[in-house]
């Protein structure tokens, strides 16, 4: 479960940093602590799995400031906000902007550790989905423009004849395109193709059946 994930702690309070490190380590996590947002930003970009336990109130760059900076460089690192200041607007804002959790100090170990667990899993999932998307995009890139068109009709459930009518080409040619699409997309069935396209978010082309 603990895999190779890294938990980052950013808090300006030294005691708090130390205690959180101890707690995360006691749960078997690998953890790193930073005294300020600037210090964290100064480390090399993290490409592994993990999450960020971030104090909201800090001098200079605050927790939300750091969150914004990370979002700007498309980091997917999940963020758990910790605050001694349970003001609702900050919490709502944080959650809206993609925080995994918003926890109040003092925080119970169970609560924190569960949140961390969830965040890491989410990160893992997010990272898996991203990989799949990459493969599909790569396969889609192989398709010719006509083949892409045919694909969109296919996942819409159109028959060859319908596609041929819509495109104004021979039914026989459609059949060849369809075979090439299945081959390039590395699927054996239309159901498989539909799943891939759903994952990639490709919309089926609505055909004009009256045509």
């Amino acid at each position: 479960m603990k895999t190779d994930a890294t938990i980052f702690v950013v808090d300006d309070d030294a005691s708090m940093r130390k205690s959180l490190l101890w707690l995360l380590r006691s749960a078997g996590w690998h953890a790193e602590a930073y005294a300020s947002a600037e210090e964290f930003l100064a480390r090399p970009p993290f490409i592994g799995t993990g999450c960020l336990v971030l104090d909201v109130r800090m001098p200079h760059l605050t927790g939300p400031d750091l969150r914004d900076r990370l979002a700007a460089c498309q980091s997917s690192l999940p963020i758990i906000f910790l605050t001694g200041h349970g003001d609702v607007p900050t919490g709502v804002d944080a959650m809206k902007k993609g925080a995994v959790d918003f926890l109040l100090k003092p925080v119970d170990d169970q609560v924190l550790l569960q949140a961390v667990q969830r965040a890491v899993e989410q990160h893992q999932r997010a990272q898996g989905h991203a990989r799949e998307m990459g493969i599909i995009r790569e396969r889609l890139a192989r398709l010719s423009a006509r083949e892409r068109e045919v694909l969109e009709y296919v996942i819409a459930g159109c028959l060859n004849k319908q596609i041929a009518d819509a495109l104004g080409i021979a039914q026989k040619t459609i059949k060849i395109h369809r075979g090439r699409v299945m081959e390039k997309m590395e699927v054996s069935s239309v159901a498989g193709l539909v799943h891939l396209c759903e994952t990639a978010g490709i919309a089926p082309r609505r055909q004009d059946l009256t045509h």
Binding site: S15, M16, K18, S19, L20, L23, G84, K105, P106, V107
Partner: peptide, 11 residues
């Protein structure tokens, strides 16, 4: 207080 709690629980 928060630091104390976390430290104690870690221990």
């Amino acid at each position: 207080l928060a630091a104390t709690l976390s430290a104690a629980q870690a221990g």
